[in-house]
């Protein structure tokens, strides 16, 4: 069982003593004194097959902050958990001769399979949309670059919206505008959600610090998600040893079919 009460891998990290958390892509703008530190106690999560989603808590601290601004609530933090990236194709159905057929499609290049965002408040009020767009923070500002020829691009917006809507409805993209909370003056706690159908691979935790609507610093940590259990072993076998997997499937069918006929003949 993997539930909230037993999230042992998340621990309070004050001094960021965990060297396991290799840092990547730290974007500190040099003319700010503020530094952002975040930490999770592990860089790998094993998920069993009965996993139904969980909250992951990330702790962080702002160093070198301006006490006045902090007291006024001018510091805002956004924490995201981004899943592995894959190309995703959006297809649109239309009625052709009375039946519904996929008539058009668009493939977006390397979009995250899952995305969970937490912030101190609604991200639209943290910084101007232009800035969020530049940084690609939030589902609405996520970079959706179409692959290949898209014609005049007039339907780009339509496909982008459909993509965002489907991913949000299915729960793999989520946002929580109150998910980051200050637990002391400069120490904060963020909870991001791992969806039930969390993809395997390297997820990235990113934290962004904004001061009065201006981006100040960012920090990123990798988090490997590894599924375990029988089902995962089956999935791996199906992809790594497909011929043997197929043979086993057939053998199982032969034994079941034959076995049943033998069993019932005796009666």
């Amino acid at each position: 069982m993997f539930d909230l009460a037993r999230i042992g891998f998340v621990s309070l990290v004050l001094a960021l003593a965990a060297p396991a958390a290799a840092q990547l892509q730290d974007e500190d703008a040099s003319d700010f004194t503020e530094k952002l530190e975040i930490g999770i106690s592990t860089d790998e999560i094993s998920i069993t097959s009965d996993f139904r989603g969980a909250d992951l808590t990330i702790f962080g601290a702002i160093d070198g902050f301006d006490g006045n601004l902090l007291a006024q609530g001018k510091y805002n933090i956004i924490v995201t958990l981004e899943g592995p990236k894959e190309n995703a194709t959006v297809r649109k159905k239309q009625r052709v001769f009375g039946i519904w057929v996929n008539t058009s499609s668009m493939t977006f290049e390397l979009v995250p399979e899952s995305y969970s965002l937490s912030s101190t408040r609604d991200i639209e009020t943290i910084a101007p949309p232009g800035e969020m767009g530049n940084m690609g923070i939030g589902v609405d500002h996520m970079r959706l670059v179409p692959l290949g020829f898209v014609g005049d691009g007039s339907n780009l917006g339509e496909f982008r919206n459909a993509f965002r809507q489907i991913r949000e409805t299915s729960g793999v993209y989520q946002r929580d505008p109150g998910g980051v909370q200050f637990i002391s003056s400069s120490l904060f706690k963020a909870s991001v959600r791992l969806p039930a159908n969390v993809p395997n691979g390297v997820h990235i935790v990113r934290a962004y610090l904004f001061r009065d609507g201006v981006f100040v610093a960012a920090k990123a940590l990798p988090l490997r998600v590894v599924k375990t259990g029988l089902e995962q072993a089956i999935t791996r076998a199906a992809h790594d040893q497909p011929v043997i997997y197929g043979l086993v499937a057939v053998l199982l069918a032969v034994i079941t079919g034959w076995g049943a006929s033998l069993l019932f003949r005796k009666e």
Binding site: P84, E86, N87, A88, T89, V90, R91, K92, K93, Q94, R95, G98, I99, W100, N102, E113, F159, A162, F163, Q165, I166, R167, P199
Partner: peptide, 15 residues
Amino acid sequence: LIIPPKDIYSVVSAG
């Protein structure tokens, strides 16, 4: 095939 689908869009991931 004939009745309108719940969502005319669908997303397929390459993986």
